[in-house]
Design a binder for these strands. Sequence first.
DNA 1: AATGAATGAGTTTTCATTCAT
DNA 2: TATGAATGAAAACTCATTCAT
Lengths: 222, 222, 222, 222
Amino acid sequence: MSTIWLEMPERRANGRKPQRRNPEATRQKLLAAARHEFAGSGLAGARVDEIAARAGVNKQLVYHYFGDKDALYLAVLEWVYEEIRAQERKLNLEGLPPEHAIKKLIEGSFDHLAAHPDFIVLLNDENRGGARHVKDSRKLEAMHSPLVSLVGKILKQGVREGVFRRGVNPVHLYISIAGLSYFFFSNTPTLSAIFGTDLGSAAAKRARRKHVVDLVLQALRP
Amino acid sequence: MSTIWLEMPERRANGRKPQRRNPEATRQKLLAAARHEFAGSGLAGARVDEIAARAGVNKQLVYHYFGDKDALYLAVLEWVYEEIRAQERKLNLEGLPPEHAIKKLIEGSFDHLAAHPDFIVLLNDENRGGARHVKDSRKLEAMHSPLVSLVGKILKQGVREGVFRRGVNPVHLYISIAGLSYFFFSNTPTLSAIFGTDLGSAAAKRARRKHVVDLVLQALRP
Amino acid sequence: MSTIWLEMPERRANGRKPQRRNPEATRQKLLAAARHEFAGSGLAGARVDEIAARAGVNKQLVYHYFGDKDALYLAVLEWVYEEIRAQERKLNLEGLPPEHAIKKLIEGSFDHLAAHPDFIVLLNDENRGGARHVKDSRKLEAMHSPLVSLVGKILKQGVREGVFRRGVNPVHLYISIAGLSYFFFSNTPTLSAIFGTDLGSAAAKRARRKHVVDLVLQALRP
Amino acid sequence: MSTIWLEMPERRANGRKPQRRNPEATRQKLLAAARHEFAGSGLAGARVDEIAARAGVNKQLVYHYFGDKDALYLAVLEWVYEEIRAQERKLNLEGLPPEHAIKKLIEGSFDHLAAHPDFIVLLNDENRGGARHVKDSRKLEAMHSPLVSLVGKILKQGVREGVFRRGVNPVHLYISIAGLSYFFFSNTPTLSAIFGTDLGSAAAKRARRKHVVDLVLQALRP
DNA sequence: AATGAATGAGTTTTCATTCAT
DNA sequence: TATGAATGAAAACTCATTCAT
């Protein structure tokens, strides 16, 4: 504090803008804002302006940190895929009794979608576009799920233990487990409108969860 | 000259362009172009210019016939929903043995999505937007599927005949049947990318179809 | 006037905006505005907004009529080249005594640049860019100057008549004639600054014109 | 260690990046990059980002060393003008026989443009803008060419010796000498496109050089 | 019914420049 | 001296929609 210059850091410490010059925080805020916006409006419908405004930063930083709108979209996809993988890792299915493992897998899958409804809607545009972002992503390439092979192991063990029937394709079982929950969440609005009931209610979700677990486990009986 | 429709080609004969003064044909061409464009680019991504160009008519006619882009989108939705209903009517499930009826329902559902992959992608934006178009549609209100109650009847009969177990919710079974096919088709690109296989191949579709029928029928066993 | 509807065309006749729905006039206004703006600011420096504003029409019409900024620039280039060719056609050099023909050619060239100083500055960016617009232009391809071969003829005739020396390359003579005027006009500002005189004055131009005619004719003496 | 310049590499040795803390080198690299970029894209078209990237230094240093983009452009102008003057000084025309002096002047002028084609294109924007940078420059004010007065002396001497005709304005002769080469180089792309020949070839340049020398010397004959 | 001109409000992206360290 | 973050003001170009015929 001996010179007037050394005071500056102090003044800055309680400066006007809190997040100033914090690249990682800025990047993260942009990513969160983008996730919200892309989920709410889709890739084409999302507005870069809106993303920057929601993140509270200058629009140019989108380009500074991510390159362009598409790259930002990919970064969001990578984020949500990483969340899925993290959830899968936390399941710790290995070593569980086969029926228990499958039940946990279904419930985990259902609960993840319930907790992250934006995952579904973020994937919509990606699927419409032929997964062009996902295909180009190095990160996603390295993030392939170990779950399919694990499902295969569980099935085999169940067959060995006589609790599962044989002949079930693990890839398609995995897709079925995902689809039974996914479709319910992805199409809640139109299904509700068509059926005239509110499938978005907590009760409806509970019922669905039970149904899905039930359906799959019954289907695996020998 | 026996019908009013046959006059139209004559009137057209003195017009400069072939489709001139053929309102119904123009409307239909716009609708088909819109379906293609909305399916390919989504609601936000679709371009009115492109739709008109693809239909080969003036852009203004979109507004003349449909009002605005949203109303055109709704008209497309009504069209594809009507196709689904028509397909369902053609199934003629009543009177069939329960297992056969369910099998036919699953296969019909799968085959319809396989034949009309755009249905899925057309619904994406509608679900993201909370089904606001569907909710406002008089036509769709009158188009509610009779299939859910039919599924209920089939289930009951199956239980009565001892071929199905009891306790299966017909609404959720219907959703499951739809979802098991829907998710496969809707997410083919990302699933293929993630699994590193081509789920869009004819072989993959055949395998999926078999798996879905199998899964549901096994799950319904008593 | 029997119905209220028939009054409308009258009201429109003295309507608010004079040039409404006059495509050719709109195109022309845009072209004139573009010429002004490109000359004043260059290709990169010109602003499409400014061009539209100067033309008094909506910016979108630039894209409607010309496609993009580059195409508009090319249209301007084609316009000024056509002016040059028109000027050349008006010279009617054929049949004149050789010395007279050359004098007229030099003066015509000089006067055209004096009257259309923007021609020079419009060509700057084109030359910097390797003439990419000119090369792609069908119109300009069909607009090649007949003057070079005419200069060749004049030179030959002058040699035959004993008024010109032999050995002068007609292409380079043509370039020299153009360059002696062109450089004077193109670099007036920097030359004036460097020499500390105003080469833009009427007197300076007169002196230059005389000098150029003189220089070339003296150089051609046998 | 005998000169101050030799210390620089040492200081660089403990820096993370090679050119660190070498102000003069940084300045020079920026200047060279700017010259390249301004020549290639013009004043309006040049990008500060690109200049910094090409120089391999931080963009901010442009502002640190030069103030702003315009000042950097002026610095480049001053550089190329200084080159011209240096070339002129090296000619050592004084004392030569008049015809030889003029020939050397023309060839020097031609060769300089051939060797530094960017000079022309750098001046374009300056002339379009009314030479505003040149006018404001102290350095350029002090750099006025001694050549015009020298040309005057040579002309006078040539007249005295009976090898040149009288009545030739030295300023305009200087402009002509410059213009005959300048226009050829500045408009090579459009002239080539219009004439359908490649004026950029070595052969074309040789022919042009000869033509220009010839034209001027012939024009000066008594 | 049908067309093409015309509009105004956006939309992504760029850019010169400044700030903070 | 040097860096990368950050900014605000534009830039070219687009788009849904309306007008005039």
